[in-house]
Nucleic acid binder design. Structure first.
Lengths: 174, 174
DNA sequence: CTACGTGCAAAGGATTTGCCAGGCT
DNA sequence: AGCCTGGCAAATCCTTTGCACGTAG
């Protein structure tokens, strides 16, 4: 778990107080850092879940209402191209974003509650490397998503997707 | 390329010829089998790949031009809900479909060519069961996608050393 | 100062749905 | 004959984009 960045520089200088992990990465990649990008970078750095664009937008305007959803889309796309963010799809029509610097992990989604559990597994890593090698491939990326339900609690919650996208975890319980 | 049906060349695909796997499943699930559903079932049964709705539609009208894309969407969604089809997302904005009765398999996508290789792996199955159990879950569904490139045949001459690090080669779906 | 970022709204692509006609059991 | 399906097009949902202006470097 990464705790808050305890950089001593806390001078209340408007906004550019302590550069977040994401912001630092942006600068490294030579991105022009504007107020809204800094804001979005901060939201992303503080996110511990996998927010979609709408959610990012909501969190951003909560801090500073001078961002448009279009900018969030643009920024998120830019960061993805720069390898700073990873776009995920848990099957809900909307893309979810995951800071790439958080390390490799996979997801276990509770189909009843929509909760997303992150996990890592060395054995799995070795296994897939082996599978790829078996076909003469070198892995560039991998995606593992497990959808399950709590072994004990099995209240059949019939959730109708309704007008929208298919079934999927819409909330990232947090 | 698809070849002409050499079985009953006389009967213009009336119905009741040879019920396809998918059609049989539909009947088992108590679905009303209409002409277009039978048609779509046939297309799906014959598909060896992972077509998207548009592709299914194309193949369907090639056999019988009396289907609308809306029906394909509806049918495909219905079959997914009945567990006859599995919806996949290889990242291209469109959903791809996979008959669930083909057995459990995963995908290895060649990021250079877009080729999709299917594979199964018992060890993997055991491993994920274990991971789920570790968190007290029973697996309902799982998704494993490997993206890689050929280890040998990859004389990629387009080395693009960008600012900072990261390949950034974003060759998304087809 | 110049190139690039941003806002707004309209465009766009994929998928869904209302309504009425028609087919399957 | 009834209920459900299928067509068509309008409606949604998510995401992208054109244009005019503000700002980082």
């Amino acid at each position: 778990m990464d705790h808050a960045t305890h950089t001593h520089a806390k001078a209340p200088q408007g906004k550019g107080a302590d550069p977040t992990r994401i912001e630092r990465l942006c600068i490294e990649r030579g991105l022009k850092m504007t107020g809204q990008r800094r804001l979005i970078a901060r939201v992303l750095s503080e996110a511990e879940d996998h927010p979609d664009v709408e959610e990012l937008y909501r969190r951003a305007i909560a801090l500073d209402s001078k961002v448009s959803i279009a900018t969030v889309y643009r920024t998120v796309r830019l960061l993805e191209e720069k390898g700073i963010l990873e776009r995920r799809d848990f099957g809900g029509g909307r893309s979810r974003y995951d800071p790439a610097d958080r390390g490799h992990h996979h997801h276990l989604i509770d189909v009843d509650t929509g909760t997303v559990i992150e996990f890592e597994d060395e054995e799995f890593e070795r296994l897939v490397e082996g599978i790829a090698a078996r076909y003469g491939f070198t892995l560039v990326q991998q995606r593992l998503e497990l959808f399950g339900k709590k072994a004990d609690a099995a209240p059949d919650a019939r959730r109708r997707p309704g007008p929208g996208a298919g079934p999927g975890a819409k909330k990232d319980g947090e």
